[in-house]
Write a protein that binds this DNA or RNA. Structure first.
Lengths: 337, 337
DNA sequence: CTGTTAGCGCGTTCAG
DNA sequence: CTGAACGCGCTAACAG
């Protein structure tokens, strides 16, 4: 025990954690510590004793690269980080949901799920037993998990209504992945039934409030490449069959769809209306002003962070619901003819 | 002690950590645990006892958003995550270098610095005393910190040589930030002297091996907006004074410079040659094939991850140096006239 | 203001 | 293969 050296017992503890102690003694302790190459309390022991580690777990279900290439997810992470400050670290855990992951053996005081599906039910169960506060950002509702959501369904319906008002009747959607499978596919009812990703499902259901049987393509992720591929598939048809409007579930997808349209010599919005979702500022997309819904991405993170803080302080904050705002840009217009 | 319940003492430990134990007993322990709502060993206590937490700290000096908006940094993080696998979590620590940050009190077994400056000297000192293995990705060399680097200087010189060979003699550079100050500025010798960011400095020095007094602008970050602003500043001059080539220290900056050129009605590469650095796939930048240097970004992360694994296993791996490869695209050409 | 005592929850001995 | 004792490094409470 390094403390017994120069001075005394656990008075050292106070010296390091800034307890009430005479500054003379504190000096003595600190110099003694230096001579003995003692660098302050061991974080592990401290966290055992205090029952707190200052770590907040952030659980994502995909690879790091895929998750944070999406500007909205990254913004949310940034919001969390801002709100929690330098006082606490963010423990990034990727849980694909298969076996026992680190999530069960890792040290953290609270958990934030970012867009996670119910695959993690078992992990959640364990954390609940341990009394670890949990917050889910746009995840499926779970008992004992505080939810931070945006009005996906409503906003999506609003966007669809706009398109409907413009006069469009034959349209298609490009959705985000509905499950953890990352493969492009036709949007079928069967697929919808097995959907586990709340965000995608809500946005779809919102759109279907206006266009009941809306079909289209499920993308393998949120990128303009995926949007391009889906766009090519949807728009490579004779004008009479081709959708006159496409609802993409993210701005990145929408940008890809627009590129596909241009590659097919179609003019947006004259030949086809394209709308997105997110309100992301996309590098190099300056030719058009995308019609979309702007969601408060950073705010989601902040709200989650502040909820965690409150929960750790023993308070009992309620669910949070944030709202997005419609932005009518230049990529939507009445159908041709 | 939950264990004393259904069965026995600390035999439970073996049941959970998979020690040699009769599977009958294990079953008994596990069911008893379930009934008692005992969810396995407490991570905090376990980590104290074992001296291992399964957590690797990743230290960045900027906001989360700024750091990971850069595709290279994100790719490196992904590489780390891939290499370490689900077995260990990544603890994201933002250390601006001011006061005592979480870095000193956080629980982790090893640390990876991503592009960190010597501001963290004190933190590093502490971790060294604690015997926490450290790896730096493109950071300044530090005693006891394993370095994972790419050949910034060499690659930059190679790129500059290409431009020189093409016949350019009047040029400018747009560098990444040289210090932790995020402000656009003229590149002065004074600024270079106070530089703390190894990457930027190395790339500059490499270019100066070919163009001795190369001047230009220090950007406030790696984004096309910054590149645009710098490009406007450099290119808004009469043709006789205007640089005929611009060396940007990142692809995002280069893209911005090209946009600035286009905004000024200059044609690339006829009126001005623009080269980047990174080899990033940039969303929506498809008109040009950027002349640049492709660096192995994911590899950097993997190398760091694998070094950490080795260090934790008690091995003593050496520094890693990865090399980039020149890519001659369509944004470079001989000077006009 | 300082020193003493008693665990935090677990992994590891060592004897049975 | 099991059960009992000990200690990891620290800190909350209390006694001096």
């Amino acid at each position: 025990m390094a403390k017994l050296a120069g001075v005394s017992g656990s008075t050292a503890s106070l010296a390091f954690s800034g307890g009430s102690i005479s500054s003379a003694t504190r000096e003595r302790v600190l110099t003694a510590a230096r001579e003995l190459n003692y660098s302050g309390p061991d974080p592990r022991a401290r966290s055992l004793r205090q029952g707190r580690s200052g770590i907040v777990g952030v659980i994502i279900e995909d690879r790091v690269l895929n998750s944070f290439r999406d500007p909205m997810t990254l913004a949310a992470l940034d919001g969390i980080s801002q709100e929690l400050g330098e006082g606490s670290g963010l423990l990034l855990l990727t849980a694909t949901g298969d076996g026992e992951s680190t999530i069960q053996s890792a040290v953290f005081d609270a958990a934030i799920f970012m867009g996670c599906s119910p695959h993690l039910a078992r992990s959640i169960e364990i954390m609940r037993q341990r009394n670890v506060p949990m917050v889910a950002i746009e995840g499926q509702a779970f008992d004992g998990v505080l939810a931070v959501n945006i009005d996906n369904r409503h906003a999506s319906a609003e966007l669809a209504a706009l398109v409907h008002t413009l006069g469009h009747r034959r349209l298609a959607t490009v959705t985000l992945p509905l499950t953890s499978v990352r493969e492009r596919a036709q949007l079928t009812d069967e697929l919808v039934k097995t959907a586990t990703t709340a965000v995608s499902l809500d946005r779809l259901l919102g759109a279907r409030q206006v266009f009941a049987n809306l079909g289209g393509i499920v993308a393998a992720g949120s990128s303009s490449d995926e949007g391009f591929a889906a766009g090519m598939e949807l728009l490579s048809r004779p004008a009479e069959e081709r959708p006159t409007a496409i609802l993409a579930q993210s701005d990145l997808l929408a940008v890809g769809v627009i590129r596909a349209a241009e590659a097919l010599a179609l003019v947006v919005p004259r030949d086809v209306t394209v709308v997105g979702f997110d309100g992301a500022r996309i590098e190099g997309f300056t030719d058009h002003d995308l019609t979309t819904v702007r969601q408060p991405a950073t705010e989601k993170g902040r709200a989650a962070g502040s909820a965690v803080t409150a929960l750790l302080a023993g308070e009992t904050p309620g669910d949070v619901s944030l709202s997005s705002v419609l932005h009518v840009g230049s990529t939507s217009g009445p159908p041709a003819g």
